[in-house]
Design a binder for these strands. Sequence first.
DNA 1: GTATATGCAAAGGTTTTGCACAGCC
DNA 2: GGCTGTGCAAAACCTTTGCATATAC
Lengths: 146, 146
Amino acid sequence: MSEQLAEGVIELLRQRGLRMTPQRRVIVSEIMRTQGHISPTALARRVQGELPGVNASTIYRTLSVLEEAGVLAHAHLEGGAEYHRAEDAGHVHLACSRCGAEDDLSLDEADALQQLIEQHHGFLPDLTHFAISGLCAECRRELSAG
Amino acid sequence: MSEQLAEGVIELLRQRGLRMTPQRRVIVSEIMRTQGHISPTALARRVQGELPGVNASTIYRTLSVLEEAGVLAHAHLEGGAEYHRAEDAGHVHLACSRCGAEDDLSLDEADALQQLIEQHHGFLPDLTHFAISGLCAECRRELSAG
DNA sequence: GTATATGCAAAGGTTTTGCACAGCC
DNA sequence: GGCTGTGCAAAACCTTTGCATATAC
């Protein structure tokens, strides 16, 4: 399935007049097979594992290209910026500041939050762009118990 | 008023056995008079304007000390980490990705959001830790008009 | 006097950029 | 063949750290 995703992206880049190099192929295929988010550094490691010698600057430049093409988007998590597939939008990220656990809000929940913010400010939030930090249920229990 | 805040902080640091140097005095006074958030770099500029020669590492170390003492907290905005007074908690930050405008949710609104998230996951969010990105009302209008 | 805070310099990490060369179309 | 993409190296940031010195208490 991610193979097909990668194919589609390659097609789209072609249509935009962009060139498909071996590096781009590997980068696209890696990031399209990634569930959720990945940092540029982590992506670089994976890509270099598959095609040694790919330079970090190529990773960054390709990520920009893909973001401009609407294929990717980035979000801010505790550790910095991470990239995810644009079609994976709606993933509102919950990150536990104590144990690092990660969870996502459902689309319905995200909608409810969005409407709440929208009503009071006319502000249209993109809740996917920043994570939501806090304490997961388990850590809350442990803290109140201990 | 911010003078009194700074006094209180200095008192608190004293009680903790921390020393009050001229550098710390200026840093504390600058950050206590700051409404909202400020980046370490921006703070450094201000402090150095008032007391030339203060090293950046002193700024960072003092920010850490103040955060550990519970006086400050940091939040993640588009441009990176920024510090704000801990008592200014509850400031949920709305940042327009188009024009850069900034706004805050009211405490009631923040509570409503928090409860919504809490109900569905047992996750206790700290909505102040990351900003909420999106489009402000004005930019939405301009975009739909243009 | 002693423990702590500072300045300085260096290192660390991530991301960007200029440039010559390679390679896609 | 021409233009785009890549690697390399350097730079630009931001932040941290080790160490000698200065200084608050």
